[in-house]
Design a binder for these strands. Structure first.
Lengths: 123, 123
DNA sequence: TGTAAACTACGAAGAGTTTCGTTGACAGCT
DNA sequence: AGCTGTCAACGAAACTCTTCGTAGTTTACA
């Protein structure tokens, strides 16, 4: 099972596609709002080659859509950063995240619920 | 304030240096336990150029030590992954981390304490 | 003194990523 | 038909990262 590891440019495309749903290069490019149109096109073609997006070529303006789930790819990205940066310690990762980003009260409570449920499975 | 973004190879060196303290190329290379000696050397020279490590050239075998704090770099790495992968949502990042890695009971409790203290600062 | 081992230094090769110029096809309009 | 704008496709160029071959220096020691 090889881990999927999009490049930064590819992440930007994928985020746009997850947000927009199936979309043309033009639409994705405008959602991103920066860089050259051809760069967006090229990256989307590369993503199609890699199978991370699928392309409907019916219309002249091809319609792309993400072929991978957002959560799954995020999970892979977390694995990467855990291994490379945190030596596998998820607790340390979360500590840094808490230090850097203030979470909304609602988010903190939801997080606590998640921890509760995980702790329930252990003991 | 430019964010420090070591490459994967550089992270490996830095992790070894944080673990060993000031060390020679040889020591770091053996700690890593893989790859070509010259690759380790080259990466450490690059790190020195970038200022992420400092080099004591007194002895023939130069002694390198990390010039940046582990926690600070981890924080930068978290910022990166938050922006690129999670659209800034630390809650989502932590959710993925919890799904992927089982934390020890002690870690879960420590995490809960951290959440408590952060929540205390709000409302 | 001669030789082997350990070390730094240099640079080139190869892969991967991103950017963008150019080309050719197609569609709409006058 | 001719003009204009939009599109996909291709490939070159620049850049980064990693690997490793080669060279030259220093140290240890017989």
């Amino acid at each position: 099972m090889t881990r999927i590891r999009p490049t930064p440019g590819e992440w930007e495309i994928l985020q746009a596609l997850w947000k927009l749903g199936p979309a043309t290069v033009r639409a994705v490019h405008e959602e991103i709002g920066a860089g050259h149109y051809n760069t967006t096109l090229k990256l989307m073609q590369i993503l199609a080659e890699k199978g991370l997006v699928v392309r409907d070529e019916e219309a002249r303006a091809h319609v792309y859509k993400a072929a991978v789930g957002r959560e799954a790819l995020q999970g892979d990205a977390v694995e990467d950063v855990l291994e490379r940066v945190f030596g596998g310690s998820a607790a340390e990762l979360m500590q840094r995240a808490l230090e850097r980003r203030k979470l909304k009260k609602r988010e903190l409570e939801e997080l606590r619920r998640m921890i509760d449920s995980f702790e329930g499975k252990k003991s």
